[in-house]
Amino acid sequence: MTKATRDGFFGLLASQQRGGKAAGHAVTLGPYTYIPAPAHCSASVNGTLTKDGPPVTLRATEPILRNFLDIMAELEDDLARRWLGSQGSAGFTAAK
């Protein structure tokens, strides 16, 4: 679950920009670290994936991984909005 603050949400995909687009910052995916290619680079430059060793350049799978992370960020934002919206309208009374 995400941690809500006044400035936004910090959760699983904290290094993603809000709105679902990859920010170009490293993203921790379990024991792996994904570093996307900079957005302004040519199509021949790819992101990398590392885990306790040298980085592996993602050639064929980077578009799939980016798409997955974008969708996950959108889902996280939607869930956070719903979570915060449901807290204000709880159907239970406070315990005495």
Results as ranks from 00 to 15, higher is better:
Leu69Pro: 04
Gly53Met: 08
Thr48Ser: 10
Leu49Lys: 06
Ala60Thr: 14
Pro55Ile: 06
Thr57Tyr: 03
Asn46Glu: 02
Val45Tyr: 07
Glu62Lys: 00
Val45Trp: 03
His40Gly: 06
Pro63Gln: 07
Ala39His: 01
Ala37Cys: 02
Leu69Thr: 07
Ala39Gly: 11
Asn46Asp: 04
Thr50Pro: 07
Thr57Ala: 15
Gly47Met: 02
Ala37Asn: 01
Thr61Cys: 09
Thr50Lys: 14
Phe68Pro: 01
Ala37Thr: 00
Asp52Trp: 02
Leu49Tyr: 06
Pro55Trp: 03
Thr50His: 03
His40Met: 07
Ala39Thr: 06
Leu58Met: 14
Thr61Gly: 03
Ser44Arg: 14
Leu69Met: 10
Lys51Glu: 13
Ala43Tyr: 01
Val56Cys: 09
Glu62Ala: 03
Ala39Met: 07
Ala60Gln: 12
Pro55Lys: 05
Ala60Tyr: 05
Ala37Glu: 01
Ala37Trp: 00
Thr61Arg: 11
Gly53Tyr: 10
Arg66Ala: 02
Ala39Gln: 05
Cys41Ala: 14
Val56Ser: 11
Thr61Pro: 00
Val45Gly: 01
Thr48Cys: 05
Ala60Ile: 07
Cys41Asp: 05
Glu62Ile: 00
Ser42Gly: 15
His40Asn: 12
Pro55Gln: 12
Arg66Trp: 00
Gly47Thr: 05
Asn67Glu: 08
Gly47Arg: 06
Ser44Thr: 13
Ser44Met: 09
Ala37Phe: 00
Phe68Glu: 03
Cys41Tyr: 10
Ile64His: 10
His40Val: 08
Cys41Met: 11
Ala37Ser: 15
Pro38Ser: 12
Leu65Trp: 12
Asn67Ala: 15
Leu58Asp: 07
Leu69Phe: 12
Thr50Cys: 12
Val45Ile: 12
Ser42Asp: 13
Ala39Trp: 02
Ala60Cys: 04
Arg59Tyr: 07
Thr50Glu: 14
Pro54Cys: 08
Asn67Met: 03
Phe68Val: 08
Thr48Glu: 02
Ala43Val: 14
Gly53Lys: 06
Gly53Pro: 13
Leu49Pro: 09
Pro55His: 08
Val45Ala: 09
Pro54Glu: 14
Gly47Asn: 05
Ala60Gly: 05
Gly53Glu: 09
Pro38Gly: 10
Arg59His: 13
Thr57Asp: 02
Pro38Gln: 06
Glu62Pro: 00
Glu62Trp: 08
Thr57Ile: 13
Ala37Gln: 01
Ser42Leu: 08
Lys51Tyr: 14
His40Glu: 11
Gly53Ile: 03
Glu62Ser: 02
Ser42Tyr: 03
Ala37Met: 01
Ala39Ser: 11
Pro63Thr: 07
Thr57Gly: 01
Gly53His: 08
Pro54Ile: 03
Val45Phe: 01
Phe68His: 12
Gly47Lys: 10
Leu65Gly: 04
Lys51Ile: 02
His40Phe: 13
Lys51Ser: 13
Asn46Lys: 15
Ser44Phe: 10
His40Leu: 08
Cys41Leu: 10
Ile64Arg: 11
Lys51Phe: 13
Pro55Thr: 04
Thr50Tyr: 00
Asn67Gly: 11
Asp52Tyr: 05
Arg59Gly: 06
Ser44Asn: 10
Cys41Gln: 11
Asn67Lys: 15
Val45Cys: 12
Thr48Tyr: 01
Gly47Cys: 09
Thr48Ala: 00
Thr57Trp: 02
Gly53Thr: 04
Asn46Val: 13
Leu65Cys: 04
Arg66Cys: 10
Pro63Ala: 09
Cys41Asn: 06
Thr57Glu: 15
Gly53Gln: 06
Ala37Ile: 00
Leu58His: 07
Gly53Val: 04
Cys41Thr: 02
Val45Lys: 04
Phe68Gln: 07
